[in-house]
Every structure is written in structure tokens, then in C-alpha cells.
Design a protein around this nucleic acid. Structure first.
Lengths: 213, 213
DNA sequence: ACCTGAACACCGTTCAAGT
DNA sequence: ACCTGAACACCGTTCAAGT
């Protein structure tokens, strides 16, 4: 009887989170309003409140969903290669949703839980290499924090962020001139890589305290 | 003639930034509205726009002001002690304004400029120890990012953040149980220290590539 | 030059009401 | 059980107007 109007699939928590993440991906964080998410689902804003307690909870859910993507990397029995792979896989996930990265600030627990599968294998690999349990956990947490922290500092580098504004970088010395050039010139990927390898070098030291010289 | 009513000191950009930071310090970020800042200065909200282009610019200024506090630490000719001191000094500044920390996300350039004095001496010390200019700069930036990134992930840990919510940490394995315990139990300061020392260990490796075994 | 009043176009959220 | 309409108490910001 009724025309073949789309039978509008039931509203659900997951559908809401997906819609929100999609909006953030291509409109930025401030485009993600309750009204916008609802509109994308062909529904009124207040309908969302039946499935989600409020906006903050909705954003928690978005982070969960974002980090629940299975990190893809080739496993290795070698702890350094394994941690390296996990770090890059996590980096890849973040880079798929640059606009959502600021949401990770202060949401460490939830996000850690989401990445727990990777954490578990990381800790296991580290233990196999000679780290005790506590050290393996600290090392994993440290690498995780390094990656997420790096991109939180980086920011989404979206249109909003204005260029280096010469006045804010007072170049009074040759050193600061070089620093300013590095900040604006050196690719972020290189700095990420340098920091990650330095961190892994440090872990190696912890593992083999001092090679007898 | 007029009673000794406070002669209300001229409104100024600095006064506005100080008021905003104070509000953030003891009311959190969401307490810092244009209207609230203005009210604290005995003025109407729209008066602020004469001294500041808009809210985003106001927050930029708050970050500048926060990081312009001179980092206090005892200098050392030894590069590791020097970097260690700078990192802890920066940490100290951040901990004085925990509610403002999220503002640092994506504002790397401005904040870097504010810390430039410390950066300059850090780079100098590293060069003196044998790092070439480019490596010294990368090392400094990496330590800076580590500190700021660490606390961005950490969050302000304010009342808003709910407890670990057992359901979000699926404890399916003994490893994950220990991870969960570490996340909730290990003091943040210890993890910060572990990560920092690991980073510095890594830099040491870069300096003396391989001690001949 | 500096500050104000009133208004605009938004927010997130509540609450009674519909089906 | 699920969705809606109308309303509330806020935002940041514009703009003409005051002094």
C-alpha cells in the first residue's frame, strides 16, 4: 500500500556513532552537532537522546568506534619490530580520522581498552624478549602515549590553524632561526619516526642495560 | 565628588588573558565564556572584541601567557641533565594549569615560540655534547612533544572524567588484568618519568651509536 | 578610541505529548 | 518502546549607537 519509501532502518547507537564520525571526518568537530547527526539519519535531534545519554557520551562512543578498527600490521616475534608495527598501525588509524584526534585528549582509559588486543600481544612479545611483566606493560603504555600524544600536539592541521605568523617566532639567534625552519619545514612524518625510533632505542637500553665496553 | 569607587583600570589585552586563565584554572574550560571573562573585569561581553578578534584568538593568547612563565630549573653543562631539567620545568608549568592543558592541542607553533628561550639553551647544550645542529633540534622538539603529548593524553583528570568503568576494560586474560591494574593503579608521575628517561636513553644511543662490545 | 544594548543565529537539553 | 514539537537557558558574534 504505502509507496516504496525507504523503510528507514531503525535508529541505533551504532548508526548514530557512525554518522557522527562521518560528519567529523568531512566537516570537522564543530560540524558535529546533535541536530546535524540527527538530520543525517533523517530524524529529529531529540531522538538521539533515547540511544545516548548526551553529547559527551556520544563523543566517547565515537572514540571507541574509531579505535576499534583492527590495527593492521605484520606480526613479528622480534619485540622491536612488533612495537614498531603496532605504533605505525595506530598512527594509520589516527590519520584516517584527523579531525577526530582532539577527542582523544583526556580519554586515555576508554581508548586504551579499545586497543587492548594490540596491547595484549605487545606485552606478550616483550615478555618473550626478556622484559618482566611490569616493564612490558610500562613500555607498551609509553609507546601508546607517544603515538597519541604526538598527534594531539600536532593537531588536525585543518584550515583553521593559521600559518606560523612570523611575529610568534622571534628569530633572535641563528639557533632559533634553524628551529623555526625545522618547525615549518621538516615533514611531521620524519619527526614522528625519529621520536619513535629514539623511544625504541631507549627500551633496548633498558633490556640490555650496558654492553660491557 | 564621585565616591572612591575603584577607578576601574583600563581594559587591556593582558588583563583579559589573565582573567580568562584564572577562570579556566578554577572553573574549567567550559566556564570560560566571553560573558564570564567580561563580568570578572566589570565590563560587558562585547567590550572584549575591541582588544581581541574573537574567542579562538583569546584562547591562543591564554596559551601564550601560560607558557611564557619562565621555566625554572638548574642549568647544567651536561646535556642529559639539562634536557631532564627543561622537561620537568615544562611539566611543572603544565601542572599549574591542568584545566588549560587541552588548549595545547594543535597549537604547537605558538607554544613552541613561547618556550623558545628554553629551546635555544637546550639546542646549544646538545651541540656542545656532540650532536649536530639538526639532531639537536630534532631531539629538543621530540622531548618537548613528549612532555606536552603526555599530558594531553592524560587529560585534566577533572571531575567530569568518570572512573574506569569496568565494562570498558574487558579483562579476558591475565595480561589485560595486569594492564588494567597498571592503568588505574600506577601513579601518572611514575609513567611520565619512565617514558622521559627512556627517551633520554634513546638519545644517548644516538650520540654514542654503539659501544664497541 | 573605547564601551554598551539589543538582537541574531545558533547550541545542548528537558519535558509533555504523540504513536 | 521509540520518536516528536515546542520551549528554555545558554552560547559567540554583529551592528548601530552612545560617550
Amino acid at each position: 500500500m504505502s509507496p516504496v519509501a525507504a523503510p528507514r532502518p531503525r535508529l541505533s547507537r551504532d548508526a548514530i556513532l557512525d554518522a557522527a564520525l562521518a560528519i567529523i571526518d568531512d566537516g570537522g568537530l564543530e560540524a558535529c552537532t546533535m541536530r546535524a547527526v540527527a538530520a543525517d539519519l533523517g530524524v529529529e535531534a531529540m531522538s538521539l537522546y533515547w540511544h545516548v545519554p548526551g553529547k559527551e557520551a556520544l563523543l566517547d562512543g565515537v572514540v571507541q568506534r574509531m579505535l576499534s578498527a583492527a590495527p593492521r600490521y605484520e606480526h613479528s616475534p622480534e619485540w622491536r619490530a612488533e612495537l614498531n608495527g603496532i605504533a605505525h598501525a595506530l598512527r594509520g588509524i589516527l590519520l584516517e580520522h584527523p579531525n577526530a584526534i582532539p577527542l582523544l585528549a583526556g580519554r586515555a582509559l576508554g581508548s586504551y581498552a579499545a586497543a587492548s588486543k594490540a596491547v595484549e600481544t605487545a606485552v606478550g612479545t616483550l615478555e618473550g624478549a626478556g622484559f618482566d611483566r611490569a616493564s612490558a606493560i610500562r613500555a607498551s603504555r609509553t609507546v601508546y602515549r607517544y603515538v597519541v600524544g604526538f598527534f594531539l600536539v600536532e593537531g588536525s592541521q585543518r584550515p583553521g590553524s593559521r600559518p606560523p605568523a612570523p611575529s610568534t617566532i622571534p628569530v633572535g639567534s641563528p639557533i632559533l632561526a634553524d628551529v623555526a625552519e625545522a618547525v615549518t619545514g621538516e615533514p611531521s612524518a620524519d619527526l614522528f619516526e625519529y621520536g619513535l625510533q629514539t623511544m625504541l632505542d631507549g627500551l633496548e637500553v633498558a633490556l640490555r642495560p650496558a654492553s660491557p665496553g
